[in-house]
């Protein structure tokens, strides 16, 4: 078990961390590059920057939009996101690991706060999953990964909670720790290639949406040519 644990903590962790960071940087840069190409070809090159930025901020901190549609679901979602981000980054045990590896750390959560945030994240993940399953409108829009992601995200939280707050036998502890680490690494690796990439692409979304409506000058002719209807009125 120790061998598995040290493999998961060493090479596998480095692999997943590199995939996460570089993978996110990759899609971010690819998006910016594609957006720049679209902008270069666009007939109308004006972009309403003020609107784009204010809308982007609005979506980044969606307090204004809570009561537009399904307010309870929105509140659950926001609370879920807070726990999801804050606990892994500011948990005392995690910061100590970073301190060992990097040589510097950052402020950590008090024990009580970490405890309740973990519980709330687990609870809200379950509630969100139920909300998606029970509402016919959202289950109509859902893909497979929309159901699988909350379940996958639950694994490290539940196992981490068991390891931190219950007295278990050392062998059981190691088993849960291994599952905890492996699940987190799987999440790291999947993030850049799935919908969770919105963690870096979110700020770009408004700009991309705006650019998508800026067509190149001869788009109408090109569309007709591609459809074999050259000369037809658009």
């Amino acid at each position: 078990m120790e061998a598995y644990l040290s493999f998961a903590k060493g090479p596998l962790f480095r692999l997943s961390l590199a995939v996460l960071i570089l993978g996110l940087a990759r899609i971010f840069l690819l998006d910016i590059f594609a957006a720049w190409q679209a902008w270069r070809r666009a007939g109308d090159k004006t972009i309403p920057w003020k609107l784009v930025i204010s809308r982007g901020l609005e979506w980044l901190f969606p307090v204004k939009r809570i009561f537009n549609n399904r307010p309870l679901y929105s509140v659950f979602s926001i609370l879920f996101h807070i726990g999801l981000l804050v606990v892994p980054i500011f948990l005392y045990a995690h910061v100590r690991l970073w301190e060992n590896a990097l040589g510097f750390g950052w402020p950590t959560l008090p024990y009580e706060v970490a405890y309740w945030l973990t519980v709330s994240t687990i609870v809200f993940a379950v509630l969100l999953l139920l909300g998606r399953l029970l509402s016919p409108r959202s289950s109509f829009l859902s893909r497979k990964q929309d159901y699988l992601w909350p379940l996958l995200l639950l694994v490290p939280f539940v196992t981490g909670f068991i390891c931190a707050h219950t007295a278990v036998a050392p062998a059981t502890y190691q088993f849960f720790m291994l599952v905890h680490i492996l699940a987190a690494e799987l999440i790291f690796i999947l993030i850049p290639f799935s919908k969770i990439a919105h963690c870096v692409l979110m700020p770009l979304s408004q700009m991309i949406c705006t650019l998508a409506w800026k067509f190149p000058p001869e788009t109408d002719d090109a569309v007709c040519t591609t459809l074999n209807k050259k000369g037809a009125p658009v």
Binding site: R14, L15, L17, A18, V19, L22, G23, A34
Partner: peptide
Amino acid sequence: LGNPSVAARTRYSLAFVVFFAIGFALMPG
């Protein structure tokens, strides 16, 4: 993946990222 140039760019950067990660993981810890 878009037109061929975009597709190629996507593929090259993916190869870079994956093999960077493998190299990083293989470094003697």
